[in-house]
């Protein structure tokens, strides 16, 4: 705060020179572009999705076919051919991908974070961290190909009933992909735990295990939680890996039934790609459903990001 005042004092005289104004407004415009982007996304998705629903289409001046908003949000059948647009069929597949990848990424990510922040030597960290970054840097279409060509056949040896396209192998690669995200944000949270707390633990005769699990993890819990939400929101929005590996047939599956993970289904993002590339007949209505799915996807990820931000803010205030 005080340095800010100092700066204000020092720069007050020149603040209004034309050059300062020019550069300042350029930088401001750059920052404002992000707001423009958000507004465009929201405006575009809302107006285009409105053209899809019977309820709102007349407001947008769209005649032609429309779909019921209630059927869209509560229907469990997605069959473009029969003009049935029940988004829950797609949501169930997305949910399964999210659950599957969470089972892999959350424990592994937290364990990685504990290892990096509490156990690993400086040298080990300098090798492991870039290696983990590469996990997140591999293009998602490549992950999809890995799942389809190598992982599914490998699973097939153990579980012969598995489909060529299945949720399981897609979740595995999505899980691997988001491990670094969980790990790096959780590790930041763990590093932010003051050393005093650790020292106090050791002083009480606690072992490293006790300190890690009994002190550091609980103290960093909100940060870990925020990393979970952020990573899962990434899994929900993941597109190419699931497009390549999860299948193309929309099905409403029960996410709690383990056997349904061996089947293929159509997650929301893959459905969007399919709507633009598949050989479906019929232009208008199917095309507009693209934006309706996009809106659902955007709202879900937005809510998750906001929750994650909120939780993260709280933990930052704690220390």
């Amino acid at each position: 705060m005080s340095t800010d005042d100092l700066e204000t004092d020092l720069t007050r005289k020149t603040e209004n020179s034309p050059r300062e104004l020019l550069t300042r407004s350029f930088f401001f415009l750059c920052a404002a572009l992000s707001v423009v982007t958000t507004i465009s996304i929201v405006a575009l998705l809302v107006t285009e999705a409105a053209k899809f629903f019977t309820l709102t289409a007349p407001l947008m001046g769209v005649t032609g076919e429309t779909a019921s908003i209630v059927d869209f949000l509560t229907g469990t059948t997605w069959q473009i051919h029969n003009k049935e647009f029940g988004v829950l069929a797609l949501v169930s597949a997305t949910l399964m991908i999210t659950i599957g990848s969470a089972i892999i990424a959350l424990p592994l990510g937290v364990a990685t974070a504990i290892y990096l922040s509490e156990y690993a030597s400086k040298q080990a960290r300098s090798v492991l961290k870039p290696a983990l970054e590469i996990l997140a840097g591999v293009p998602t279409v490549v992950y999809g190909f890995f799942a389809l060509i190598y992982i599914t056949p490998a699973i097939g040896v153990v579980l012969p009933g598995i489909g060529t396209f299945n949720i399981l192998s897609a979740s595995i690669v999505v899980g691997i992909m988001i491990i670094p995200m969980v790990a790096s944000i959780s590790e930041d949270a763990m590093s932010a735990v003051p050393d005093d707390l650790r020292q106090a633990g050791y002083g009480m005769g606690a072992t490293k295990f006790d300190v890690s699990t009994g002190i550091v993890v609980p103290a960093a819990l909100s940060g870990i939680f925020s990393s979970f939400i952020l990573a899962l929101s990434r899994a929900i929005g993941e597109t190419m890996a699931v497009t390549v590996a999860a299948g193309a047939q929309a099905k409403f599956l029960n996410p709690l039934d383990p056997s349904s993970y061996l089947e293929g289904a159509l997650p929301m993002t893959a459905a969007m790609v399919q709507l633009l590339t598949g050989d479906i007949t019929g232009g208008g209505l199917a095309y507009r459903s693209l934006f309706a799915i996009g809106l659902v996807l955007f709202v879900i990820t937005l809510i998750m990001n906001i929750i994650s931000d909120y939780v993260a803010q709280r933990y930052r205030e704690a220390y």
Binding site: T281, G283, G284, Y287
Partner: peptide, 9 residues
């Protein structure tokens, strides 16, 4: 590849 209908529309 856009699909027959998508390509026209």
């Amino acid at each position: 590849s856009t699909g027959s209908g998508g390509g026209f529309a």
